[in-house]
Every structure is written in structure tokens, then in C-alpha cells.
């Protein structure tokens, strides 16, 4: 059997008394692409943020690339360096140029020489087609360009896994496609991806599995084709009818 790169077993998480994640089980094999959808507030963001421990879970096990995440995990930074994350709000560093945004972590976390880090940065910026914007600051770029820069920044760490939290939700409609194109490209390159999105066209194109969440639970997990053509749960059906 193929080894899993991400494993969640029976994960439960609370914000104070409020339970956000309920008995989450999830396994992801290398190079698999998983799309998570579900209504707002259902815990999608919290789930993927647990995978790089931006949020801490209280019960269950989360194992990423062979390392279990818990309070006693040393070197949580090392795991985070292997898990790239792209946020809804881009979260580029406004005080640094696009090039520096991308080269910073390779220099300071991976300890690469500056020249090599900038080379990597330029290559990744080329990959997302904004190498001509490298010396500008984030505030001077359009939303779509900023999000592509954010993807390039994450790629510069050469991660094994990429997490996307609604990467196109803050974008104007005409910019969504340029970001999705980059993501499709990345998927075809064999990256392991977990994507929270409501872009169902994208999901149909790249996802191996679909996950539907509601009220902190995974309601349905199915092969993409089956998920869209023949959803089992009523709630999934209702949700799909609303957004398709």
C-alpha cells in the first residue's frame, strides 16, 4: 500500500466550548489532490490550518510526512517549511519587494546563499508569470498578481504539500482564472494539494477526491466524478444545487 503523506485520525478541535472539528479522518497520498468544499463556518479553514499547526487540535492524531503534530513536536518550523500555504488574503509582506518576499524564507530558513535564493525566486515567479513584477512592492500589484506571487513565495521553499484556503475568494472575477491556471499547472506537475475552494470547474479538472464538510464534520468524501454525478448525502446535494 502506498504510504500516506498526511494522516488525520479522529481529530477533534474546540474553540473554547465550541467544537469546530468533529471526528475528522483524512488520508492523503503523495501527489493526490483534494478539494474541500462546504458552507461558510463549517470548519474548512480550521481543518487545513491544523495540518501546518497554525491551529492546534485537542484530540486525535495528525501525522504529516511521518511526523506527528502535537505540543511536544520539536521543529514544528521544519514541518511548516515543507507545507506551503496560500491564504485568501494573500498575506504578502508589504514592506518587501516581490522578489524579497520570495527569497526571504529560502535565505533565512533554508540558509541558502542570497544569490541562489534569488535565482529560485525568479524561477518560481517565471512559473507564475510575474517575473516582470519582481522588483515591485505588493501594493503595486493587482489582486491576481498578488495571489500568484503568494503561490510563488510558497513554492520557493520547495514544499511537499501545498494548502490553499479559498485562494480566489478575495479576487475580482476577471482575475480568478489567472490564479486557477497557475494552480492547475501546479497540480499537473505532481504537487500534493489540499484546496478549499468553491470553484467547481477547477475541482472537476484536478481533484482526485472531493470532501464536503458541514458543521465540523466530513459529510461526504468521494471520487470527484462520483461526488458530482451521484452525491450520497442530502446535504451535499442541497449544497451542490446551490453553488453549481
Amino acid at each position: 500500500m502506498m504510504s500516506k503523506i498526511i494522516e488525520l485520525k479522529n481529530v477533534n478541535k474546540w474553540f473554547d466550548k465550541f467544537q469546530v472539528l468533529k471526528d475528522i479522518d483524512l488520508e492523503v497520498a503523495p501527489q493526490e489532490k483534494i478539494v474541500i468544499c462546504g458552507p461558510s463556518g463549517s470548519g474548512k479553514s480550521t481543518l487545513i490550518r491544523c495540518i501546518n499547526r497554525l491551529e492546534e487540535h485537542q484530540e486525535g492524531n495528525i501525522i504529516v510526512d511521518g511526523t506527528e503534530l502535537s505540543e511536544s513536536t520539536k521543529n514544528i518550523e521544519k514541518i511548516r517549511a515543507e507545507v506551503g500555504m496560500v491564504f485568501q488574503q494573500f498575506n504578502l509582506f508589504p514592506h518587501l519587494s516581490i522578489l524579497d518576499n520570495c527569497a526571504l524564507a529560502p535565505i533565512w530558513v533554508k540558509k541558502l546563499p542570497k544569490k541562489q535564493a534569488e535565482e529560485i525566486a525568479m524561477n518560481n515567479l517565471k512559473r507564475v508569470q510575474i517575473d516582470d513584477q519582481a522588483l515591485k512592492f505588493p501594493g503595486q500589484l493587482s489582486g491576481g498578481q498578488q495571489q500568484r506571487a503568494a503561490i510563488a513565495r510558497a513554492l520557493c521553499m520547495e514544499p511537499k504539500i501545498m494548502l490553499f484556503d479559498e485562494p480566489t475568494s478575495a479576487l475580482d472575477p476577471e482575475m480568478i482564472k489567472e490564479v486557477l491556471d497557475v494552480m492547475v499547472d501546479l497540480a499537473k506537475g505532481g504537487m500534493t494539494m489540499i484546496v478549499v475552494t468553491h470553484e467547481m470547474g477547477f475541482a472537476k479538472e484536478v481533484a482526485d477526491y472531493m470532501i464536503f464538510m458541514d458543521e465540523g464534520k466530513i459529510v461526504e468524501r468521494a471520487k470527484t466524478k462520483e461526488f458530482f454525478e451521484n452525491p450520497k448525502s442530502e446535504r451535499t446535494k442541497l449544497f451542490l444545487s446551490q453553488i453549481l
Partner: peptide, 15 residues
């Protein structure tokens, strides 16, 4: 500073 700045830095593996 927005929380996103902290999260972005952490997600890149910065301590």
C-alpha cells in the same frame, strides 16, 4: 499588524 502577517511568516517555516 494583521494576523495574516504572522501566519504567512509561520507557514514559511520561520520561528
Amino acid at each position: 499588524l494583521p494576523k495574516g502577517q504572522y501566519e504567512a511568516a509561520k507557514s514559511l517555516g520561520m520561528g
